[in-house]
């Protein structure tokens, strides 16, 4: 590869990233606005939740969070953001030369790290809202005074652990549907397979896989009804409770970015269209992102929170559909 080619590839990668950031900044606003219209109200302007709120948090005073390791706790959302960026980068066609790093295995590994971060966040946050609240709990006559006392975030840390164990199952199965069809773990092979045979989405296995992928997408984003990690009913915001100022802004940004990245992984694996600013097909990536955001907003507006009682059967059922899709891909 000549230097000129490398330069163009470099510019393309940077350009795609910038475009992705620009698009993803509007996504939380679109989602919120969509929900608001379903709820028969006007709702916030679409720039507010994704752009103005992070901007505002950047201009706030940086405080020391209540945490045993404040430094690590504050750095976690940045790590999450970097992982999300690398997730996007390994799907870009310019980087397929890195062979081993651009395989589905790397994709799955990075997604796993993204989930583990929540566990760390949960165990490091010690908000004022539960145990630190100055209230005389242990008094004469109180029940079980000797019991170990915990913060609500510990609860969500445990939930994050469980989600790692089973919650992200659907998205992995859906990813491996494409592997089974293209018979290769390399993203470049999956993409080139679809350029020859047409998108995987338009086959039986592909449709089933897409459904499973979407459920996995919502679980990974902790969106209602799968928001057990941060339900308002008990853990308030769960692992994110102590983030303030610019670190909260990173949390906001990385959430919007993750929507875009997961949707573009979908269009790479199921439509054969990797995100690439040098091609007009980037518009399809953006369209897929918008459609995903809107479907997600609709589903989350019409559903309550799921506890594990509903969560286990749902994930089991969706995983069964995923396995069916893999079987169908061999037919």
């Amino acid at each position: 590869m000549s230097i000129a080619d490398s330069l163009i590839a470099f510019i393309a990668v940077i350009g795609t990233l910038i475009l992705a950031f620009f698009v993803s900044a509007w996504l939380p606003g679109i989602e919120r606005r969509f929900q608001a219209r379903i709820q028969q109200r006007i709702g916030p302007p679409i720039s507010t939740p994704g752009i103005m709120a992070p901007l505002k948090f950047f201009f706030k005073e940086v405080i020391n969070p209540n945490s045993p390791m404040p430094g690590l706790y504050n750095v976690l959302p940045i790590i999450g953001l970097i992982i999300t960026i690398s997730l996007l980068m390994i799907t870009m066609p310019q980087l397929y030369v890195l062979a081993a790093f651009t395989s589905v295995i790397a994709l799955v590994g990075l997604l796993k790290v993204e989930e583990i971060i929540y566990m760390f966040m949960g165990s490091l946050s010690q908000s004022v809202l539960s145990l630190k609240m100055p209230f005389p709990d242990i008094v004469k006559g109180a029940k079980h005074p000797g019991v170990r006392r915990s913060f609500v975030e510990e609860l969500s840390s445990m939930r994050a652990f469980r989600l790692i164990a089973f919650g992200s199952f659907p998205i992995y199965i859906a990813i491996f549907v494409t592997v089974a069809i293209a018979k290769s773990i390399y993203i470049s092979d999956i993409v080139s397979y679809q350029q020859i045979h047409g998108p995987i989405l338009f086959s039986l296995a592909g449709i089933l896989g897409a459904i499973v992928f979407f459920i996995g997408f919502m679980i990974l984003l902790n969106e209602y009804p799968f928001a057990i990690l941060k339900t308002k009913a008990d853990v308030i915001e769960g692992p994110l409770l102590e983030y303030a100022a610019k670190y909260r802004a990173y949390v906001y940004i990385s959430r919007g970015f993750l929507i875009f990245v997961l949707a573009s992984i979908f269009s790479t694996l199921f439509l054969g269209i990797p995100p690439n600013i040098l091609s007009w097909t980037i518009l399809i990536n953006i369209a897929v992102t918008l459609v995903f955001t809107m479907i997600m907003a609709t589903v989350s507006t019409f559903s309550p929170i799921f506890t594990f009682k509903q969560f286990y059967p749902l994930v089991a059922g969706v995983s069964m559909i995923g396995i069916l899709a893999i079987i169908a891909s061999f037919l």
Binding site: L129, S130, D137, H144, G146, R149, V152, L155
Partner: peptide, 23 residues
């Protein structure tokens, strides 16, 4: 001394919620 009876129960952790809480 007051809680000998209740100690038999296996209780792992206490999660205090409130007094300011979203639910």
């Amino acid at each position: 001394e007051d809680n000998k009876v209740t100690k038999k129960q296996v209780i792992e952790t206490e999660v205090p919620l409130g007094t300011v809480h979203s639910a």
